[in-house]
Design a protein around this nucleic acid. Structure first.
Length: 110
DNA sequence: CCTGTGACATAAG
DNA sequence: CCTTATGCCACAG
């Protein structure tokens, strides 16, 4: 069979696309789902290359605290927050409120 | 092969 | 909760 997406990056992108509307997840959760729980940093780095993958919902991926750490990599300053709020996620000071309520764990849901 | 790097995570103080 | 330090690991050059 074809190697499909053995590339770590490709896997990250795929999971990112699977994030449901109005939900968020953490880099560590994705990394864990990919079998590389200690490669959470790679997940974020992979997103950095997501420029070729426009379908990726990078704004739904945050760090463990629910903090929009990657928002600095977005176009605007508050674009990421706007997108999340638009989906019904309460975001204050670049941090998601009631994170547990919106959190979506791929390893758990999938 | 070796070095640098990075949108994190965890531990320690 | 804060800051600081360390680990971690896949990829680029």
């Amino acid at each position: 069979m074809k190697p499909e997406n053995q590339n770590f990056f490709e896997r990250v992108y795929e999971v990112a696309r699977l994030i449901p509307y109005g939900r968020v997840t953490s880099y560590g959760a994705i990394a864990k789902y990919l079998g590389a729980a200690r490669s959470a940093r790679m997940v974020g780095w992979a997103m950095n290359s997501s420029g070729k993958h426009e379908d990726i919902q990078a704004h739904r991926v945050v760090n463990r605290k629910g903090l929009l750490t990657g928002k600095h990599h977005f176009q605007g300053t508050n674009l990421m927050q706007q997108l999340l709020e638009s989906e019904g996620v309460e975001v204050v000071d670049n941090q998601i409120q009631n994170l547990e309520k919106y959190f979506w764990d791929p390893a758990k849901e999938l």
